[in-house]
Simulated assay, not measured.
Amino acid sequence: MTAQPHGVSFAGLHHRPGEPLLLPNAWDHASAAALAARGFPAIATSSLAVAAAVGLPDGAGVTREHTQRLAASLGAGPYFLSVDAEGGFSDDPQDVAELVRELWRAGAVGVNLEDGLGPAGRHAAKIAAVKAAVPGMFVNARTDTHWSGDGDETDTLRRLDAYQQAGADGVFVPGLTDPERITALVRRLEVPLNILYSTAGPTVPQLADLGVARVSLGSLPYRRALGAALDAVADIAGGRTPVGTTPSYDEVCTLARGVPASGPANSAG
């Protein structure tokens, strides 16, 4: 397992009142190394980025091998690694536990498991099986009541209670942006609350004031990277010089060798 950076555990990063863990999501070795070079102590993977990179749908349970391959590539990095494993790529709790055991061996210390609005009992059984198999793994239990459901408060609480009781170390409610409902959840929960950052929702400092323990960026960095590439091509085609942060060729080569660069240069080259 990866050595603990900065003298603190991954779980400990979720228990700093007023200072939530800002968790950026990488999609390959270079992006993870670049984020580590900027001082982020923990980095997660993005299931959308994993799927999009190989031309497969996200959330369909078809990227298990690709997720494991990325975890193996990033697991030895100088940061805590949390893996987005969708719903565990199986309905069998023991199969999910075996997957997480393999991720742990690769160097991951956290795993994100989503219920996809399937039965709460089945998801709770997965969480319990994972914690029994790999007690040290930080299990972030995600419910999709606000992401793909109707945001029903009763259902959200019922699911989160079941996941806490099953042993989840934290819970994740992507799509929830209302400050009052976030505050109410923080007060009710016994474990740290993870919120997905939204440009239409509270800022990170505001989420900190609400008591949120972890703020994930999800696929946003990957989508922004794609957008930046499209903007650069459009600028060049229009006779303009691309603007924004552009790492040099040598800096990217350094990242690829696994030696974090001091930081990307602002240049068009």
Rank of each mutant, 00 (worst) to 15 (best):
Thr143Ile: 08
Ala49Asn: 03
Ala11Tyr: 10
Ala162Asn: 09
Arg214Thr: 11
Ala33His: 11
Thr145Glu: 05
Glu114Thr: 10
Phe89Gly: 03
Thr67Tyr: 04
Thr143Pro: 10
Leu103Gly: 08
Ala26Trp: 12
Ser73Phe: 04
Ala37Cys: 13
Asp91Asn: 12
Pro20Asp: 12
Pro174Cys: 05
Leu48Trp: 11
Arg181Cys: 06
Val233Arg: 11
Pro247Leu: 00
Glu98Ser: 12
Glu86Cys: 06
Ala213Met: 09
Thr177Glu: 00
Gly211Phe: 11
Glu251Lys: 04
Ala265Asp: 15
Asp209Pro: 12
Arg188Leu: 09
Val212His: 09
Pro57His: 01
Pro135Trp: 04
Leu22Ser: 11
Ser248Pro: 01
Gly258Lys: 01
Ala52Asn: 07
Arg257Lys: 14
Ser46His: 04
Trp27Ser: 01
Asp144Asn: 13
Gly75Ser: 10
Ser267Asp: 09
Val54Lys: 12
Ser46Asp: 02
Ala32Arg: 03
Ala166Ser: 01
Asp150Pro: 08
Arg101Leu: 08
Ala32Tyr: 03
Ala51Glu: 03
Ala34Trp: 09
Pro78Lys: 05
Asp155Thr: 14
His146Trp: 13
Met137Gln: 04
Pro202Phe: 00
Leu226Pro: 10
Ala11His: 08
Ala128Tyr: 10
Gln164Arg: 05
Arg69Val: 11
Val171Ser: 07
Met137Leu: 05
Trp104Ala: 13
Thr241Ser: 03
Asn140Arg: 12
Ala53Tyr: 02
Trp104Asn: 06
Asp169Leu: 02
Ile43Gly: 07
Asn140Met: 12
Asp95Pro: 05
Asp161His: 09
Leu210Tyr: 13
Val191Trp: 01
Gly75Pro: 00
Tyr249Cys: 09
Val96Ile: 01
Asn112Met: 12
Ile195Pro: 05
Ala234Pro: 05
Leu193Thr: 09
Arg223Gln: 14
Ala3Leu: 07
Val215Lys: 14
Val191Glu: 03
Ala268Arg: 15
Pro5Ala: 02
Asp250Gln: 14
Arg224Lys: 08
Glu190Val: 10
Arg64Ser: 00
Val54Gly: 07
Asp92Asn: 15
Pro5Tyr: 03
Gly39Leu: 04
Val204Gln: 10
Ala53Asp: 02
Val96Gln: 01
Asp155Asn: 09
Phe10Pro: 00
Val139Cys: 02
Val173Asn: 10
Ser219Val: 13
Val171Pro: 06
Gly170Asp: 03
Phe172Gly: 03
Val191Lys: 04
Phe80Ala: 07
Phe80His: 14
Gly258Val: 04
Ala213Pro: 05
Asp58Arg: 01
Leu230Ser: 08
Leu217Ile: 07
Gly18Glu: 11
Ala232Phe: 01
Arg240His: 07
Asp144Phe: 14
Arg122Ser: 15
Asn25Trp: 10
Ala36Trp: 08
Ala265Pro: 03
Ala128Thr: 11
Pro260Arg: 06
Leu255Lys: 08
Phe10Tyr: 03
Gly87His: 15
Gly151Thr: 00
Val96Asn: 01
Asp58Lys: 01
Leu56Gly: 05
